[in-house]
Write a protein that binds this DNA or RNA. Structure first.
Length: 176
DNA sequence: TCACGGTCCAACG
DNA sequence: CGTTGGACCGTGA
């Protein structure tokens, strides 16, 4: 396993990967004492240049960066969870959002909204798998495993606007 | 099995 | 509008 760090306005990010693809991304320092998962240690420091550049552009460049092309290693997940995660990576572009229910529907499981939320809650690759772009059906923010503040900030970076009642405008909303 | 979510929506007031 | 209660479904223990 390899890893590298990169500073962002939201704290230091650490990314883990191997020859199969990306495995983990987490906020390493910053936000109230979040810890390094203990199962990750002893990796070899090695930058993945294109990914490094993409992250840098995303956080500092204010440019439309998508991570859709980067390979993921999601072997340890169940098929449904994998589907949810890969679908999110491939079909929810920059500055667009959708809901848990809509995403479930797109996978042919119209009623599995909560299950989809559960799958996203175990997203090992926030930012790269853009689970911050999935909000509640009525456009309210919804939850986020890294903390709702981070979710808000990420959407802010992408210039997704919320109205006074706290809902995203439906221009950016995708429904399947 | 079972309890638990990053939910949803119809039915209120 | 805002709130509430029940239905829903894949997971991990």
């Amino acid at each position: 396993m390899y890893f590298f760090n990169i500073g962002t306005p939201l704290g230091i990010i650490r990314v883990w990967y191997d020859d199969q693809g990306l495995q983990f991304l987490y906020f390493y320092e910053g936000e109230k004492g979040r810890k390094v998962p203990p199962f990750l240690s002893g990796g070899e420091y090695k930058i993945w240049p294109s990914l490094y550049q993409a992250l840098k552009d995303y956080f500092y460049g204010g440019r439309e960066i998508d991570f859709q092309g980067f390979p993921l290693n999601l072997d340890r997940y169940t098929p449904f969870t994998r589907e949810v995660l890969t679908f999110a990576q491939k079909h929810i572009p920059y500055r667009r959002v959708t809901s848990y229910g809509s995403l479930a529907k797109a996978l042919g499981r119209g009623k599995a909204a909560r299950a989809a939320g559960r799958a996203l809650a175990s997203n090992p690759l926030p930012v790269i798998i853009p689970c911050h772009r999935i909000v509640k059906a009525e456009g309210l923010l919804g939850g986020y495993s890294q903390g709702r503040d981070i979710k808000r900030e990420l959407l802010k970076i992408e210039k997704v606007k919320f109205n006074l009642v706290g809902r995203v405008n439906n221009e950016v909303f995708i429904s399947w």
